[in-house]
Every structure is written in structure tokens, then in C-alpha cells.
Amino acid sequence: MAKIERVVGRACTLRGDDIDTDRIIPARYLRAITFEGLGEHAFEDDREQAKGNHPLDDRRFTGATILVVGHNFGCGSSREHAPQALMRFGFQAFVGGSFAEIFAGNCTALGLPHLCLAPEALSALMDSIDLDPSQEVVVDVANRKVSCRAGTFDASIPEGAHRQLVGGTWNNTAVLLEAGSAIEATAARLPYLKRSEAA
């Protein structure tokens, strides 16, 4: 698995708090048995309603690989289709005020860093990108920093996610399997499972 130490590229700003996963990918696109093709439907209804003025349709942001968002991004439904859609649209990292926990967990599982900035830093980063969307933004996952022309800002990410991304261990299945028979040993100690095994 790849070590995700840094993501460098142009960034797109998407302002506003509490943007939920229904908006990121409307439920009608969950009527499928694969994640294929989700990228083209990212934020579909918001974009339709913005009539071309949505950041994802702004030509200045075309080709951006970093999405900069507000607070509580990805709240609501647990659908992994949301980060899948954004990843397939072309984003490789998220920077924001805060992320809903299930969304953040889904991002980690896909190798997508999600770094949080303090309000002032987030505001400075967004303003700088909006002023010059052609600039290179550096999401330094390893050192928990985000840099742009306006400066370098301290960022935070949950410790577990940080170690997984930087260490290249973000596919949990492999890590969890290493526990081997300790899994069954834990189950055997649970009072509510003793009966099931006897039955």
C-alpha cells in the first residue's frame, strides 16, 4: 500500500459548513453494486442549482487535486460513495475546519488525507486560493502542515489516521487479520456469545 506523505497540487475551495453526503452524492446514484462512474455525479444537484457557478464547475479550479472545505464536512449518511465520488472526480486530499467522523474514517480507508486547520488559517488558505487558484498547495501529511502563498499552517489529523496514511497501512483488513486467533479468543470471553456457542 502506498505511503501518503504529501499531496501537492492545485486546490479548489468549497465554502460553507455542514455539507452532507447526500449533497456530495445524491442517493439515486447509490442504486448500483459498484462505485464505478460516481465521479461524474459528485455534487450533481448543487451544481445543477448553481447553474455553472459551483466551484467544481469553475474553470479556474479545473484539475485541482485538493478540496478545501468548511466545518463538519461529510456529515449525515455513512455512504462511502461520497469520498469515492470525490476521489473519482480527481481529489486526492481534503483540508477543512472539521470532518464528520464516519466520512473521515471512510477517507482514511481510501488513502485520502483529511487535515483540519484552525479557523483563521482555513480562512487565509481559502482567500489565498481564491485569489490565485493556479498556485501550488502542499498538503504535508507527514508533518501535519498545509502550505500556500499565504504561508504554512499547522494542521491536525487524528493520530490513528495519520499513522495509517504515512505508514501505508490504511487498508485495515490486512492489519486486523494479523490478530489471528486473538479475535476468537476475545469472542470466547464475551458473556453473550457463550450461549451461542453452546447452542
Binding site: S78, R79, E80, H81, P83, I102, G105, N106, A109, L110, P158, E159, G160, N171, N172, T173, V175, L176, L177, A179, I183, A187
Partner: peptide
Amino acid sequence: FGIGTSQVRDVLATQCLSLA
């Protein structure tokens, strides 16, 4: 816990989750 699809895979495969 509500979880995403990669975590559903984790639970199917290992009956475990990695959580803080």
C-alpha cells in the same frame, strides 16, 4: 457504529473494526 463500505469489508473479513 455506522460504518462505510471499506469498514464493512473489514468486519466481514475479520469481525473487527479499527477505531479510536
